[in-house]
């Protein structure tokens, strides 16, 4: 009865493919976004606590390292959003042919990159976050 259950093949023996890499990226970005949501909480908490706390928050976010984290966060968000939509299409029964899977995968990556670059071009056009 207590025979060990069969194990899935180990990931290490597989050559990374766009399908598997995008799949694990959905999880990684999901977990990162969950952790990063604390930044959003910090934003509303700072706003609700008054001008002084808000300027403190903005000063931290204007540091180059914060920009780096926020850049990663933005990409994770756009990636998880587009790939999430891709998942919803699969749930509805569309796009299972290998050709479609590759095409939608590339489209997801392309969209995430373009949207991330556009967002940050906009922010840098206005120099910085202001108090």
């Amino acid at each position: 009865m207590n025979r060990p259950r069969p194990l899935s093949p180990h990931l290490q023996i597989y050559k990374p493919q766009i399908t598997s890499v995008l799949s694990i990226m959905h999880r990684i970005t999901g977990v990162s976004l969950s952790i990063g949501s604390i930044i959003l909480v910090a934003w509303v908490v700072a706003l609700a606590s008054g001008l002084e706390s808000y300027s403190y928050f903005i000063n931290i976010t204007n540091h180059w390292f914060s920009h780096l984290i926020l850049f990663g966060f933005t990409f994770a968000l756009y990636y998880h959003l587009s790939n999430g939509i891709r998942h919803l299409f699969w749930d509805a029964g569309f796009g299972f042919e290998l050709k479609s899977v590759y095409l939608s995968g590339s489209l997801v990556l392309f969209t995430a990159f373009i949207m991330t670059i556009s967002t940050w071009s906009f922010i840098y056009f206005f120099e910085n976050f202001t108090i």
């Binding site: 934003w43 706003l47 001008l51 903005i58 906009f122 922010i123 206005f126 910085n128 976050f129 202001t130």
Partner: peptide
């Protein structure tokens, strides 16, 4: 958010 964060408190 992008608009509010560049326009200030």
């Amino acid at each position: 958010l992008m608009l509010t964060i560049i326009s200030g408190y």
